[in-house]
Computed example of a mutant assay.
Amino acid sequence: MKLQKTLLGMACMSALAAGAAQADYPNRDIRVIVPAAAGGGTDAIVRKITNLAEESMPVSMYVENVAGGMTATGLLQLMDARPDGQTIAAITYDSIITIPWKDMLPGFGMDRMRMIARITQEADAITVAEDAPYQSLGDMIAAAKENPGSIRIGIQNMGARTHLTLLQLQDQTGAEFKIVSYDNSAATQKEALLNGEVDAVVTSLGDLAPLIESGQARGLVEFSDTQNEGFPNVPPVTETDTGLDLQMGSFITLVAPARTPDDVIDKLETTYHEAYETDEFQQWLTQIGVTPAWLGSEDVTEWSRDTQQQLFNTMDNLVEKGVLEK
């Protein structure tokens, strides 16, 4: 009996201590994992909004790049972290789609993390060199049909998002491109486009903004149904004469480890939302050609599950057709 009382007392003390810790949150610096190399689009966006969010926090918030394994390395570190809000991460398409579909982390599912918010969406696009002969997506598709495999298009990793975008384009149009795969970075795609190694690349317009702004490259189409205000001369695919409605791209979502308390999630969501709504952040996104697309914790959780299921079905269908390998 005495032992039971002792154990009960210890449990109550632990619960009270945990409650007090949550009430004081945050009381230590917050680590924000970016599962990609420094210098990329995701890294820049997360650093920008985190710097703004930090202004209303009593502690420092520092971004740490943990690249590798199509975001799997950073995702592992998030899942192994204590669910106390002191470690969070910014994840993208690969963490929600590619990794679970390919079973790259056995046992991993979206129940291993808690969604805080979605910050942005960024459509994939086709960008060509300035002197490319194609003036529209229709021109490129016609050329690819006339000479199958003659147009070289650079993507980021076989089986990753940009590969899926191009495979769907081929499947829906009957065009055949020569697919050239690079590592998971827009930097290698930029270099390949500049030196003529490829005729076009599939990635976001924001990734190639410096080349487009300098006149070294031009966007041909964006796989979206909305005009990108940062690139008014690049049409969304739904406004081309191809009849296509192929919409694909990435996004940035903030997450915490599973079992992170509700009040901690609420605090993080509120803090980041305030940073998101600042004129500074909104204007900066427009300048770099990225679409602001906020969804709070509850909405982004539902959106993520719906998006995952939809793309899993698309990818499974492409496997059945022999277009994609799992």
Rank of each mutant, 00 (worst) to 15 (best):
N195L: 04
I116E: 01
S297R: 02
T127M: 07
A143Q: 12
Y134T: 03
Q121T: 08
L52I: 12
Q247Y: 06
R118N: 05
K2W: 10
I97H: 04
E55T: 10
I49S: 05
D207Y: 00
A209G: 07
A132C: 07
G154R: 02
Q310P: 04
P257V: 05
N27R: 12
T50W: 01
E280T: 15
C12I: 11
L16Q: 11
S60D: 14
V319Q: 11
E302D: 15
P148C: 10
L268A: 11
D131N: 14
G289M: 07
Q22R: 11
A89R: 02
T260Q: 09
S95H: 05
Y276L: 14
L164W: 05
G74N: 00
N195I: 10
E55D: 12
M10G: 09
E239S: 14
A200E: 03
V180G: 03
E325Y: 13
Y93I: 01
T271F: 04
S56Y: 12
M158S: 15
T87E: 11
D316G: 03
D225S: 15
I252G: 01
G243N: 08
N51T: 12
V290I: 12
P100M: 10
D84I: 08
D171K: 04
V290P: 02
P133D: 03
T42R: 06
I91D: 02
N27Q: 13
Q282C: 04
D171L: 05
F108Q: 03
G219C: 14
E55M: 08
P235A: 10
V66S: 04
G149N: 13
T127A: 10
L167Q: 08
Q170I: 04
K48N: 06
D299W: 06
D103M: 09
G109V: 13
S304Q: 05
F223W: 14
D262A: 14
P236Q: 10
N27K: 11
Q282T: 06
T87D: 12
D80T: 06
N184T: 15
L7P: 05
A15D: 08
D111R: 15
A21P: 00
E320M: 07
L295A: 07
E130L: 04
I151L: 09
I126K: 00
E122N: 07
D207Q: 09
G74W: 01
A81F: 06
G138M: 01
I99N: 03
L220Q: 01
K267M: 13
D94Y: 02
R28S: 15
D263W: 09
L194C: 03
S185G: 13
M140R: 05
T203W: 00
G40I: 06
T6Y: 14
K102F: 07
Q77W: 04
N157K: 15
G243A: 10
R31A: 07
E130V: 03
V234A: 00
V201M: 11
K321T: 09
Q77N: 08
A90T: 01
Q135N: 14
M70E: 06
I91E: 01
G174C: 10
T307I: 05
I179H: 03
G39V: 07
N51S: 13
M57C: 15
V221I: 10
A275C: 09
I49C: 09
A175F: 05
L254Q: 02
T240V: 08
L295K: 15
T73N: 12
D225T: 11
E302Y: 08
G107E: 09
S60A: 13
